Amino acid sequence: MIWFAVLTLVWLVVAVFGLQARQRGSARVARRWTTRLYAVTCVPLTALVVGGALVAVQLTFSQAGTGEAITAATPYAQWLAIAINLVIVDIVIRRRDVTPRASGRLGAQVHESFTFGSASSPRP
């Protein structure tokens, strides 16, 4: 149950950071926090996959029964799922911020001005 309480707390903290960024008007920072929120939301699915892999390894290389393997693998799978998801999403966020876009600019420089100049100039 401690794992579920920690997961809930992490989800709430990430959601609050995303809302605060959105309220400050920083769309890029809010998008990063929203991406992290998706990663935290998917932790139970990742825990199932990692747990299945850990159980398969234990059943292959040890004499433990299925119940014992599941009981032994569950805590590791839960904590590894949080770590795996947050590390992967951070790598994705960092890569997205430094990869060149089609416009030739870096990903961190995606905001453009909304002013069109004088009233006589044509709109893009």
Rank of each mutant, 00 (worst) to 15 (best):
F114A: 14
A102C: 03
T115R: 04
A53G: 15
I82G: 01
T66H: 02
R96G: 07
V50W: 08
A56W: 13
V29P: 00
P122D: 13
A69G: 13
L54K: 11
R94E: 05
A47T: 05
I2G: 08
V55H: 11
A108I: 09
L86P: 06
L54F: 13
L80K: 01
A39P: 01
T99V: 13
V89C: 00
Q58I: 10
Q63M: 10
A53M: 15
R101D: 04
G117S: 01
I84C: 05
P100Q: 06
V98A: 12
V98S: 11
V6K: 00
V49E: 03
R32A: 12
G67Y: 01
G25I: 08
G52A: 12
R22S: 13
E68H: 04
V57W: 12
F4W: 05
R24Y: 00
A119M: 01
A30K: 03
I82L: 13
L54N: 10
P75S: 07
G65Q: 10
I91H: 12
L80G: 02
R105L: 14
A81W: 04
L86G: 00
A5N: 10
P122K: 10
A108T: 12
I2D: 10
T74Q: 01
G18A: 11
R94L: 05
F61R: 04
L54H: 09
I82F: 05
G67F: 13
A64T: 07
V16D: 04
I91C: 11
S120E: 07
L12N: 03
S103G: 05
M1D: 09
Y38R: 11
L54Y: 13
A64D: 10
A81F: 05
G65R: 04
V89I: 08
F4A: 15
E68V: 12
A53E: 15
Q20P: 02
S118P: 07
G51C: 06
A69C: 15
C42G: 15
V87F: 08
T74S: 05
P100M: 07
A21I: 01
V87I: 14
S121M: 07
T71R: 09
Q23R: 15
A81R: 06
V16S: 11
V57K: 09
F61W: 04
W79H: 01
